[in-house]
């Protein structure tokens, strides 16, 4: 059973097709990469899957449940979580609080318990903080435990988003260019983090430009161009596909 099925999905903005009649599926436990040149519609696809945009046509099924048209927070409750290409950090909060917001769904969210800070809630909040500190260490942010998000460097913020997304305990994690703007060392570290995440059983959907990283860690790849599926398969298959080479790798080589 596929974890995620995208069926004949389309999205247009004022007559321009950002995604056109796209069908593919993601198997549980995989690291599944979406590749394609700039403007191929990768981020739009993420926005459609996670409910930030509503599709013009087609359907998205998550765990065999029709989810297109649902709000992002509803999808989060079903086990979908993501990061952003353009950071969406809560800069008005501490780093660890950013991660704690990620754990929102698993906490007592009743207004009154929050207002009165009952002992039970206080305990749960304490556990939440420890759990989130653990996640920060997991992604390599141990030294930023007490930092304000606004004071952190770019590379650290990218990891912070991953930690926040993980705090929601997702079944599927979508990462939008996690290595963009990072240097080689940082990029390798992110690479390690993604492998670690996948090894815990979380399915990872990855949009990334760093081909070395994509080819190295992906179980399966879907290649897009102009919003349409160009090719799919294992890294070796995709690399050998002449159309992909022409449209994407060729353009870069």
């Amino acid at each position: 059973m596929s974890l995620l099925k995208v069926e004949s999905l389309s999205k247009e903005f004022g007559g321009v097709h950002a995604i056109e009649n796209l069908t593919f599926s993601v198997e549980p436990g995989d690291i599944h990469s979406i590749i394609g040149p700039n403007g191929a519609g990768k981020t739009t696809l993420f926005n459609l899957i996670t409910g930030v945009y509503t599709p013009s046509a087609g359907r998205v099924l998550f765990q065999d449940r029709l989810v297109s048209g649902m709000k992002p927070y509803e999808l989060a409750a079903l086990g979908m979580s993501r990061t952003f290409q353009n950071l969406q950090i809560f800069f008005n909060m501490k780093a660890i609080e950013n991660v704690m917001v990620g754990h929102h769904l698993h906490l007592d969210r009743r207004f009154l318990s929050s207002l009165l800070r009952l002992p039970k809630m206080r305990r749960a909040d304490h556990e939440c903080r420890d759990f989130c500190a653990g996640l920060m260490e997991f992604v390599g942010l141990a030294k930023y435990l007490d930092a304000d998000a606004a004071s952190m460097p770019y590379g650290a913020l990218k990891r912070l988003e991953i930690a926040r997304a993980l705090a929601a305990k997702p079944r599927m994690l979508l990462l939008d260019e996690p290595a963009a703007g990072l240097n080689a060392t940082e990029s390798r570290e992110i690479d390690e983090v993604i492998k670690k995440v996948a090894s815990t059983g979380v399915t990872v959907v990855l949009v990334e430009h760093d081909m070395k990283m994509v080819m190295g860690i992906s179980d399966y790849i879907t290649a897009l161009d102009y919003g349409r599926k160009l090719a799919e398969g294992t890294p070796a298959e995709v690399r050998a596909n002449p159309e992909v080479v022409a449209a994407y790798l060729g353009a870069h080589a």
């Binding site: 903005f13 981020t43 926005n47 930030v52 945009y53 952003f84 290409q85 353009n86 969406q88």
Partner: peptide, 10 residues
């Protein structure tokens, strides 16, 4: 009435 409808870019 005549304002541009913006789509948030994320």
């Amino acid at each position: 009435l005549f304002g541009k409808r913006g789509t948030d870019r994320v």
